[in-house]
Design a protein around this nucleic acid. Structure first.
Lengths: 341, 341
DNA sequence: GCAATTTGAGCAAACGTTTGCGTAAGCAAC
DNA sequence: GTTGCTTACGCAAACGTTTGCTCAAATTGC
């Protein structure tokens, strides 16, 4: 086998004895090329098995038709679901998606960002790592005209584009449900303080308790770094209270899994001695013996899809002369509590 | 803000009053450039915030430093774990990984392949969709000199590069364990016939029964298309036997989840009335009340990592004059049964 | 039958980088 | 002072495609 060079536009031109520009235009069905020529070009292209060299295109157009997605961990259903949202939105536009997993470390997040930057992606979607407490690395992208849209785990800043979940709706449904079931001591196992989600959950928890005319007992509020041992410790702390909660709102389903195990280890019965509501709505509950009363669904797919839509707006907008000051694209997506009863 | 053009090698050249070729070489620390010039170039590059335009490079070098990975579904831990294997291997080589989810349909698999093809990826890793029964679309890649390495779900052909799991070791450990526990009626819930894995499991099941001097009862062998309802039906079929099995080898953990639910629904007790061993070793069991005796781990990460190694060999080898006939790179990775007792 | 317009197509530049080849300057050996 | 070698750098082509400009031929309008 000889060296297997792919056919180019030049070969077609040579074969038909016309110029490359004519071929190029014919392939795009440009009106200034005659019908006969256009047909012959298409014919020849087919025969030769011609396919446009995208590398050349990307180079020429200074555009890669590629967007980067940085997420903590693909293994988490929330993020793999989000990724589907991105891909489904990007596909019809013929954009390619490249992915980086920060594995919840700032260091990797930065490295991935650098890599995407010099791959000249057209835009980036980010869900922050747990470690991320500084946003300089994103700032630097502005110099390169690479738009960034955050989703789900967004920075605590105002001058950014983002799509985030609104937990209020779901949280209110959850606590109201618990109250209606007769629960009065409702605990909260919260996440690490540096996550915006943590503060948000706390505020909403307090707010929704008040909405239900329940008074707040700060002993019922504990937190975890999300590590397994810490999850267990948090749950044990609640159970050790003189007046332990009869229901607990838990940071997410993973923490909850540990909580359930902890409760069982203490020979207590979930949904009887203690009930749970969590955030995430993982598919696993379907298969579990013991499931929480409900989970607060945050619509990963929709969030990511919307974030991608924003990103595309920004990418397109980048070409046009921008309005004096850019409006920041921001969107909040309401959560919903789903019951497993 | 003016039009934010990224600095190029030309700007550096102009600024220093030298030629672009000198700049290019200096940036690569080429020995033919003087130490002083090299330093000044690096200095200027830093000042201007220069970064090489990879689009231009990819184009020039006719190489994208990108590999494509086609897998059925990222949401499956097996594949997200595999993906990590790919990325970890590819990262040090500065390759970018792009992913396509076939969602177990041949149609999407083909579309993704087409897309990757005209993105001019340097190579492709594939784990087949369940639907895939024809391999022409992969054949066509040969014309484009794009090497393909299959892993895990590999075509039933000999003239391919692949990495596959060897279930024999794990299966033998599993059946031997069951036999040692006193089980004599060991069933098999197998997958769809078109998957190579299915035939393999059957053969090994038979072989390992014989190794343990058990005689085969074909009533104990059923199969499922892997749909939830079918999984349940398969399990029910086994339970309805006059002489139902006391232990069952199950195609994978997902099927097993349904089986366990089915057993419970029939008011039987898992691990007492009926025991299970499955394939996959999902992290979920850790959190479940009811877990199988064990799972047969197939080392997704290692398989994918090895497959990537193969792919890189092929990519590199493509440049060198190839030996008369290419040897096919093939590797089998032994499975292991992990006990949850 | 001549000017004006339309149609169909080619020329050449441009995108940013690498690299083979050429060459001038400096130096050593004879 | 010629030759030969090294060091340090520049020239220009090449990668495949698109696109603004140019231009000849064909068609139209009068």
């Amino acid at each position: 086998m000889h060296k297997n060079k792919l056919p180019t536009i030049k070969e077609i031109a040579k074969k038909l004895n016309i110029s490359t520009s004519t071929v190029s235009r014919a392939l795009h069905d440009h009106k200034s090329i005659g019908a006969v020529t256009t047909m012959r070009v298409h014919q020849a292209a087919k025969e030769l098995g011609y396919e446009v060299n995208k590398s050349a295109l990307f180079f020429k157009q200074q555009k890669t038709y590629t967007i980067g997605v940085i997420i903590p961990n693909l293994a988490e259903p929330f993020f793999s679901s989000a990724l589907c949202g991105v891909e489904d939105f990007a596909e019809p536009f013929n954009y390619t998606v490249i992915i980086g997993q920060s594995l919840d470390t700032l260091d990797r997040e930065k490295r991935i960002l650098e890599n995407m930057k010099d791959h000249r992606v057209d835009g980036i979607l980010v869900s922050l790592s747990k470690d991320t407490n500084t946003y300089d690395h994103f700032e630097s992208l502005k110099k390169y005209n690479i738009p960034v849209v955050f989703f789900d785990r967004v920075p605590d800043k105002k001058d950014i584009h983002f799509v985030a979940g609104n937990l209020h709706s779901g949280m209110l449904q959850a606590i109201t449900k618990l109250v209606n079931m007769g629960h009065k001591k409702i605990g909260l196992i919260n996440g690490p303080a540096k996550l915006a989600a943590t503060l948000q959950r706390l505020e909403l928890y307090l707010k929704c308790l008040r909405s239900n005319d329940l008074e707040v007992n700060y002993d019922l509020i504990v937190s975890t770094t999300l590590s397994k041992t810490d999850n267990v410790t948090a749950m044990q702390k609640l159970m050790a209270l003189e007046q332990p909660p009869t229901a607990v709102i838990v940071f997410n389903d993973y923490v909850l899994l540990d909580c359930i195990a902890t409760v069982k280890a203490a020979n207590l019965v979930v949904n009887k001695d203690i009930s749970f509501i969590s955030f995430a709505n993982l598919p696993i509950w379907e298969y579990m013996d013991t499931m929480p009363l409900g989970s607060i669904e945050q619509f990963a797919y929709q969030q990511a899809s919307k974030a991608t839509e924003f990103l595309f707006q920004l990418i397109e907008g980048g070409n046009q002369p921008q309005p004096a000051e850019v409006k920041f694209l921001q969107c909040i997506i309401d959560s919903e509590m789903v019951s497993y009863s």
